[in-house]
């Protein structure tokens, strides 16, 4: 898996690069801002670009803009966005703009390298990754009593993991269930929430998150 890193904090970037290399990830390039990241994408054609949201010059949403540009010019490159804080509107915008291979994680997640490497690999394979905190925030959102209250604890767990972008197999591994059981749970969840069932991971992530946000 060939990866480039874009973050203006040199110390963090270097540390992350060496940690990823030791975990078997091929870090082919590093950039300190969005423009340099775009140059690297064009010249190196990596599998995944890891982008910090806040980068110079304004330190607001440069990473997101760069993601849109990469998606437009190189649709096959996976994008993993790192953020200091969860901004749900950023997550939804990313998922809507990007049909596959996109992830949004809190920067803190580098504290669990195995999970982080897993996220990079999922994004590189075209899957979706959504930070658990995004999902828990949206689940905690105040709402009128509704179908969500009718879910069993198991179904709710399945919903959460589904919203994080995990496949049925991965959910099964997590919960100690067979893939078939997970499939059944997913079907029930979709039916209870009155959502169109969708086999494709990315589509169902977007559907669930949109539902949770109440849009």
């Amino acid at each position: 898996m060939r990866v480039i890193l874009a973050d203006d904090a040199a110390l963090f970037r270097e540390a992350l690069a060496s940690a990823l290399v030791s975990a078997g990830i091929d870090v082919v390039g590093q950039a300190a801002d969005a423009a340099a990241a775009l140059d690297l994408v064009r010249s190196l054609q990596p599998d995944v670009a890891v982008l910090d949201v806040r980068m110079p010059p304004t330190r607001t949403t440069e990473g997101l803009e760069a993601a849109s540009e990469i998606r437009a010019s190189h649709p096959s490159i996976g994008l993993l966005i790192l953020s200091q804080d969860v901004e749900t509107r950023h997550v939804l915008r990313l998922l809507r703009d990007t049909p596959r291979g996109v992830g949004y994680l809190l920067k803190d997640r580098v504290g669990n390298l195995a999970e982080f490497v897993d996220a990079i690999e999922r994004v590189g394979r075209g899957g979706s990754v959504v930070d658990p905190e995004v999902v828990s925030t949206l689940l905690g959102r105040g709402r009128a009593p509704g179908p969500l209250d009718d879910l069993t604890p198991r179904e709710r767990q399945v919903l959460e993991l589904m919203a994080e972008g995990r496949s049925n197999a991965a959910i099964g591994d997590r919960l100690g269930l067979t893939e078939r059981t997970v499939e059944g749970n997913v079907r029930i969840v979709f039916s209870k929430l009155q959502l169109e069932p969708s086999a494709e991971d990315h589509r169902r992530v977007l559907a669930v998150l949109t539902y949770l946000r109440g849009d």
Partner: peptide, 18 residues
């Protein structure tokens, strides 16, 4: 906080993980 302390603490978290 975001660009200073938080950034440094994230780096520390990464180093601790290593």
């Amino acid at each position: 906080i975001h660009d200073g302390a938080q950034q440094q603490l994230v780096t520390v978290a990464l180093l601790l993980e290593t």
